Simulated assay, not measured.
Amino acid sequence: MKKMLSAVLLSGAVLSMAALAAKPAAITTALSDTARPADDVKRDGDRKPAEMLEFSKIKPGAKVMDLVPGGGYFTRIFAKAVGPEGWVYAYQPSELDSFSKGKSPKILAVAKEYPNVSVIHAPINDLSAPEALDVVFTAQNYHDMKDDFFKPADTDKVNKAVFKALKPGGLYIVIDHAAEKGSGLRDTNTLHRIDEAAVKQEITAAGFEFAGESKVLRNTKDPKTANVFDPSIRGKTDQFVYKFRKPLKAK
C-alpha cells in the first residue's frame, strides 16, 4: 500500500513538473524562483499562478501594477516574469495601514529583494502610475474597496485611474470571490464577496471592454453563503477571473 501511495505521489510530482516545463520560459522562471517563500509555494495549487500569468499576458519587458499586493505573493512572480527589462509597481493603499498587520513592511521587503519592483504607498483614490502600464492586476481586493477597509474608496474614480494608467490595449485583471447572483454589493463587508455582474458593470462604465474570463478558479460547489475566511471554504471559494481591455484607440 505504501509503495502504491509513493508511486502515485511521484507520478503527480512528475506530471506537475512536466506541465510547468511546457509553459513559456518566463512562467517557469517565475514559479521556479528559489527566493519565493515556502508558504507562497504551498498556495500555488489554489491560486494557479501559471494560468494567471498566461491569462494576463504578462511577459518579459512588461510594465505591471500589482494593485493591493498584500504580502507580495504575485509581486514576486511578476518580478521574475517581466525580467530585468520590465517593472512591477506594488500599489499599497495607505488606507490599509491600520489593517495590514505587518503586510506593508512585507511588501517593502519584497521590493528590496527584487531590483525591478517599487512600492507606491498612497491613497487608493489617488491611484496613478509613473509610466504607461501593460497590465494592472488585482486579486481578491475589489470587494474590499466597497467595505470598511477602504472607506471612502471611490471605485468609479479608481477604475478611471486604472484606465488612464494603461497603454491603449492594456489589460485590467480582476480576481475576486463570487457572491450570489443578483446580490450586488450586499456581501462585500460581511462575507467578503461581490457579485461579478456588479464588477463588470462598473469597470466597463469606465471605458473598458470586457475581454474574457478564466474559469480555473471556479468552484461550483461553493454555496456562496459563507465568509471567505470560514475554514469550510477558505482557499476553495468560487472566484471569477475577469480580463478587461483598454480600447486601442483610447487615449
Rank of each mutant, 00 (worst) to 15 (best):
A198R: 06
S100Q: 14
A35N: 14
D97F: 11
L108Y: 14
D156P: 00
M4L: 15
S100P: 00
N227H: 12
S32Q: 10
D134P: 05
I58H: 02
T204Y: 05
T75K: 04
F99S: 10
T75S: 03
D66G: 10
K48S: 13
M1L: 11
E51L: 04
D176L: 01
E85A: 01
D222F: 01
T204R: 03
T28Q: 07
K3V: 12
V228M: 07
N227I: 08
A129I: 08
A35C: 00
K200W: 06
F244Y: 07
P105K: 11
V135M: 07
K42V: 13
K249F: 13
D39F: 13
D97Y: 12
N189Y: 05
K2Q: 15
R47I: 05
R193N: 02
G45R: 13
A90L: 04
R218D: 12
D144K: 02
V68M: 15
Y73K: 06
K224S: 07
P152A: 08
N189R: 12
A21V: 02
D187S: 12
A211Y: 03
Q201L: 11
A211M: 10
T188C: 09
T190A: 10
L96W: 09
A7W: 08
P123T: 09
A211V: 08
S232G: 12
L191S: 01
G184N: 03
E202H: 05
T155Y: 02
E202I: 03
R218W: 08
V88T: 06
F208N: 01
L217T: 07
N125L: 08
F78W: 02
K181C: 00
G71N: 15
P49N: 12
E51S: 12
L5H: 13
T188V: 11
T220K: 11
K80N: 00
A79M: 08
E85I: 02
K103L: 15
K181A: 11
L133T: 08
I173K: 00
V119W: 05
A13Q: 00
A109Y: 08
V241M: 04
N141Q: 11
K236H: 02
T28V: 00
K106S: 14
A198W: 03
F74S: 09
A109T: 07
L217H: 01
R36H: 15
P24A: 00
K215N: 10
M65N: 06
K215H: 13
I124E: 06
